[in-house]
Structure formats: structure tokens, C-alpha cells
């Protein structure tokens, strides 16, 4: 087939293949300016490993705030936890050099506000998942971040204690 198609065909295929390889290198290796096309934007910088912990903290804070608003008799118990999650997000943002979003996403659905135990159950599930994420992040963190992330994991465990 190659011989039948002749040299120009093969060289074209090789160029395409080389271009594909280059594009792969450009994406994976992050070599700016090495793409085939000059106007190709540089690949975005890899997100900080703690970025998911920041969005997680903001999400948890919003859940507690929504639950406290929907079930006022739980507010006294839930508001300090919401504040703790906001404090975690702020500290993580400071450490990672991230700017926290000013506008938060739509408040999460609390569920049936009459069903107090259902609301608490939902919070427990979210908090438990968040605690597990923070534990994993603490074990993987470099030494200089391990204490902060460890405190956040421990804090989330104390939130579960308050919800119990």
C-alpha cells in the first residue's frame, strides 16, 4: 500500500503522526510554545492538589447554612460548623494562593425540612465523605501542609460527633 501510494502520501502521514505526537507532548509535558500552532493556548497549570478540599469545604458550608435556614431549631448546632468550613476554605485558599469565589453556587437542596433526622442524615453523609477526603489529602500532603490538612480532617470528625 505504501509503495503504491508513493512517497508524498507516506510523508504526509508521517507529518500527521509527528504532529499528533508533538501535540501529546505539548499537553502532557506542558512545554509552552512547542505546539505546532503558534496561537495554541498554553495548557492550563495543573490544579493545586488541595483545590478539591477548598471546593469541598465551600460545598459543606453551603449545605449547613441551607439546613440551618430551613430548620431553625438546628441553627445553633449547625452554624458553628458552617463557620468552621468557611474558615477551612479561607485558610486553604491562603496556603494555595487561590482566590475564593465570591458568588457561591445555588444553595443545595436540604430535602424535607419537616424531616429533621433526614436533614441531619444528609449532613452526616456529606461530612463523612469530606472527612475521608481530608484524611487522604493529609496522608498525601507534603510535610509543610500536613498539619493544616490534618486539623481539617480532625475538625470534620468533630462535626460528625456534633451531628451524632
Amino acid at each position: 500500500m505504501n509503495q503504491q501510494n508513493g512517497a508524498p502520501g507516506r510523508s504526509r502521514r508521517e507529518v500527521v503522526r509527528a504532529a499528533a505526537l508533538l501535540a501529546l507532548v505539548g499537553t502532557a509535558g506542558g512545554l509552552p510554545g512547542c505546539g505546532l500552532f503558534e496561537d495554541e493556548p498554553d495548557p492550563p497549570p495543573a490544579p493545586d492538589p488541595l483545590a478539591p478540599l477548598i471546593t469541598g469545604a465551600l460545598d459543606l458550608a453551603a449545605r449547613y447554612e441551607a439546613a440551618a435556614a430551613a430548620v431553625p431549631e438546628l441553627a445553633e448546632r449547625l452554624r458553628p460548623i458552617a463557620e468552621a468550613h468557611r474558615a477551612h476554605a479561607a485558610e486553604l485558599a491562603r496556603v494555595t494562593g487561590t482566590t475564593l469565589p465570591t458568588a457561591t453556587a445555588a444553595p443545595p437542596v436540604v430535602g424535607d425540612a419537616q424531616d429533621r433526622s433526614g436533614v441531619l442524615r444528609g449532613l452526616r453523609e456529606a461530612e463523612r465523605a469530606g472527612r475521608n477526603t481530608a484524611r487522604q489529602a493529609c496522608v498525601e500532603a507534603p510535610p509543610e501542609r500536613s498539619a493544616l490538612v490534618g486539623s481539617i480532617a480532625a475538625a470534620r470528625a468533630t462535626h460528625l460527633e456534633v451531628l451524632s
Binding site: 458553628p80 493529609c138 490534618g150 475538625a155 468533630t158 460527633e161
Partner: peptide, 30 residues
């Protein structure tokens, strides 16, 4: 981390029993 977490949880449990609010701190052990 388990050592830190367990101590933080017990501190919260004791604050609850003593009626101290808030029962949590934002950064346990800091």
C-alpha cells in the same frame, strides 16, 4: 492523624458534656 482526630473528638465530647459552646474549634490542635 488518628491520634489527633481521636483527641479532638474527645475534646468536643467533653465540651458537650460540660455545656461549653461552641463545642468545636475550627482547627483542632493548632
Amino acid at each position: 492523624l488518628d491520634g489527633l482526630t481521636d483527641a479532638a473528638v474527645r475534646a468536643t465530647r467533653w465540651r458537650r458534656r460540660a455545656g461549653i459552646t461552641p463545642v468545636i474549634v475550627p482547627f483542632p490542635g493548632r
